[in-house]
Design a protein around this nucleic acid. Structure first.
Lengths: 189, 189
DNA sequence: CCAACTTGCTAACGAACGTTAGCTTGTATA
DNA sequence: TATACAAGCTAACGTTCGTTAGCAAGTTGG
């Protein structure tokens, strides 16, 4: 692994744990066993690390979605399940970067911040369209689309807080369960 | 409103917007139209503000839960719905403080941090027990309890990100809808 | 009215921040 | 072998941070 990759990995963990603003270059350097000034042999700036994390994760989410829909599923339910599974897979592949992605983007400076927010909006639109299709073709109950997209993403996006690779459930399984819960609810029929 | 209350309110909004660590005393002072040093006429320290926010919100959540269960509901479903509604009411009553509560607690120093985490664990236990009761008495499908508590709380806890008092839905309505979605799912029967 | 308190200010402190500059040593390449 | 580059270090910069100290003016209460 390149030193630059190591720097980013260490930074990601520290950003997750302490937050971007509360993580200093000296913290990062110490964790890597070097001096803060030496970090600049590998990176341009502190923010460059954050940008890399945020835009890489954003791209991962879009890639996963593209793969999930490589072949067009027949139903909106299938689409939703696939979208949820894909989303969870990205999160669980790198929970630290996901955590940073979900909460530290606000520290991006312009124009990166604006770009990031646009990407996010586009991504949410994918879920919106799936739900809309499901409501329109009668698969889903009548619902407030925006509200429901946010509810689903809320449930999904907190996964990084508690997912453990060593835990009982695989990412696929978690995704499937979340999909099931979203579609069927908790109540016994 | 007392000046101390104003300081806390302003700080809450800034903490929400920028994060605790990235909000300086000078930022807060500026927003209040005074100098940073003057803040110390009203507060002891920066962290005192954060402590006040976190522990006040924690208490609010417990109070709301106590009120929701003033009379013992008959079913686990009713309990869950009440718990969800109560939870959402607290969040929507003060979305800024809620946002700070959910994400900035990590900046608390010990022993406050430890206390906070204990309170949080106790609160999650309430949802855990409701789900457990529902599963045991056959109201809910067999499920992984921990996973489901986290799913529900995930969905609920992101509400502060998008709830708008001026929006179409009241807090009660949002709570009811979230409860309905959790219990029944999106799928049309 | 006067003393005590409150609330603001300026000035400053010691510490911490992200980063640059210059140097040294090790490594790679022609 | 000599040169160029990489990767580290120390020292330092200018800036920012949370906070304290001392002062002045306004407010409150006896």
């Amino acid at each position: 692994m390149s030193k630059k990759k190591q720097v980013e990995l260490t930074a990601t963990e520290l950003f997750q744990e302490r937050g971007y603003a509360a993580t200093s270059m000296r913290d990062m350097a110490q964790a890597l066993g070097i001096e803060a000034a030496s970090l600049y042999s590998h990176i341009k700036s502190k923010e460059e690390i954050l940008q890399n994390i945020c835009f890489r994760m954003a791209q991962n989410f879009f890639d996963a979605m593209e793969e999930a829909f490589a072949e067009e599923p027949a139903t909106a339910q299938e689409k939703l399940t696939r979208a949820i599974v894909a989303h969870i897979k990205v999160i669980t592949e790198d929970t630290s970067a996901s955590a940073v992605f979900f909460s530290e983007w606000r520290h991006l400076s312009e124009p990166h911040l604006g770009e990031f927010l646009q990407m996010r909006e586009r991504y949410e639109g994918i879920f919106y369209n799936i739900l809309k299709e499901g409501v329109n073709n009668g698969e889903f109950i009548a619902l407030d689309l925006k509200f429901s997209v946010l509810t689903i993403l809320s449930a999904l996006n907190w996964t990084h807080n508690w997912f453990k690779p060593s835990g009982k459930m695989s990412a696929e399984e978690i995704g499937k369960r979340l999909g099931f819960t979203m579609l069927n609810g908790l109540k016994k029929k």
